[in-house]
Computed example of a mutant assay.
Amino acid sequence: MKFVLAPDSFKESMSASVAVEAMRRGIHAVRPDAECVGVPMADGGEGTVDAVVDALDGQRITVELQDPLGRPTEATFGYVAHRKLAVIEIAAAAGLELVAPNERDVLRASSSGVGQLIANALDRGATEFLIGLGGSATNDAGVGMLVALGAKFLDASGRPVAPGGAGLKDLDRIVLDGLDPRLCDVHIRVACDVNAPLLGPTGASAVFGPQKGATAADVELLDAALSRLVSVTEATLGHARHDTPGAGAAGGLGFAFFEFLGAESKPGVEVVAETVGLERAVRGADWVFTGEGGVDAQTMLGKTPFGVAQLASRQGAHVVIFGGRVAPDATVLLDHGVDRLVAITPDGTPIDEALRRGPQALEQAAAEFVRELIGTAT
């Protein structure tokens, strides 16, 4: 009997790799001869670097760079040398959590740290990139990233515009002669589950700006500044597809990746699944075990267990979703390729205890399910 173990992390309790090993121990406690294939998963957000590095035997690289306010800090990305693959979560270099609430300044926050991570990966020989968008403190449409990679964004006097989204109101021309030439030979895939365009009432500034400390006046200024960027980009490149779904993701970083770096975008779980070879692993599987900390009806909106279930069911495998918490409305998943939902902790368990005992509880839940499965088969 073949089991594929493809969970996401159980937030604050265990990483995806720890969850894989807990599932494996539970299965082997009941069926020592079972084939267990571990494929740690993620959806492009937090935990993506860990999942891909662990699945593909890569390494974690820590780099000194600048945070969104230009202060020195460190960030980590993943690198899989045999694939020349770099895995970057932009939140590691430009994330909201890097700036204390009382220090947030969305008008001048820069995405330069993301460019510094990319440059370091290029130095190591990367030719393939998986970029997880989301959780940024910035609203500069990726201009800081592009500047760190050698581009110039100049005002009418030929001086660099000020860092941050607000500085783009003075943009007059873009010079790309110095953009790192190695970028011409790379393939960039962006894991993006946000469909927001760059501009307007559903764009980066209006929807996400207030979460980063923008006032109503700031939102108006930022949207006008990004409109200026779009105009100059159009004059420079001959295109500026600001309405592309996802262009507004991560403070407009999606726009920079799509327009200037030729990136392709897919839902996060699909990009991660392709990268770690989940479809190949699932072939011939009898059961696929997946899961995450909380499972509910929202799991259908691009989260890892649902993406795994869809792929597995297409391959004819049965699917079990394990959750630290399984909400009543999660039963809708049973109509979409999921065979069983299993809560690993009893209702009423104190949250601290549930988080602490997560791996043990998941191991026990997996063992109980396999024991039931064997009993049913006999």
Rank of each mutant, 00 (worst) to 15 (best):
F3M: 01
V4Y: 07
V4R: 00
L5F: 08
P7F: 13
A16W: 08
S17L: 11
V18W: 06
V30S: 07
P40H: 12
A42E: 02
E46D: 12
V49C: 04
A51R: 03
V52M: 05
V53Q: 06
L56A: 00
L56H: 11
R60N: 11
I61N: 11
L65K: 14
P68R: 00
T73G: 09
T76L: 04
G78L: 02
A81F: 04
R83L: 08
I90S: 03
A92W: 10
G95M: 02
L96H: 05
A100Y: 06
P101F: 10
L107G: 07
A109L: 11
S110T: 14
L117S: 01
A119R: 15
A119H: 10
L122A: 06
A126P: 01
L130H: 02
L130T: 05
G134N: 06
G135Q: 05
D140I: 03
D140E: 04
L146P: 07
A156C: 09
P160L: 10
D172C: 07
I174N: 04
D177V: 04
G178M: 02
L179Q: 03
L183S: 08
L183T: 06
I188C: 11
I188Y: 14
P210S: 07
D218H: 13
E220Q: 14
D223E: 15
A224H: 14
A225Y: 10
L226I: 01
S227L: 03
T236Y: 02
L237Q: 05
G238H: 01
R241T: 09
D243I: 02
A247S: 14
G248S: 07
L253G: 04
A256K: 03
L261V: 03
S265G: 12
K266P: 00
V269Y: 14
T275K: 03
V276N: 05
E279G: 09
F289T: 02
M300H: 06
L301I: 05
F306D: 07
G307V: 15
G307L: 10
A309G: 11
L311M: 13
A312D: 09
S313C: 03
H318C: 12
G323A: 04
G324K: 06
V326F: 14
A330T: 14
L334C: 08
L334V: 08
I351P: 01
D352C: 10
E353M: 15
P359K: 13
Q360K: 15
A365R: 12
T376G: 09
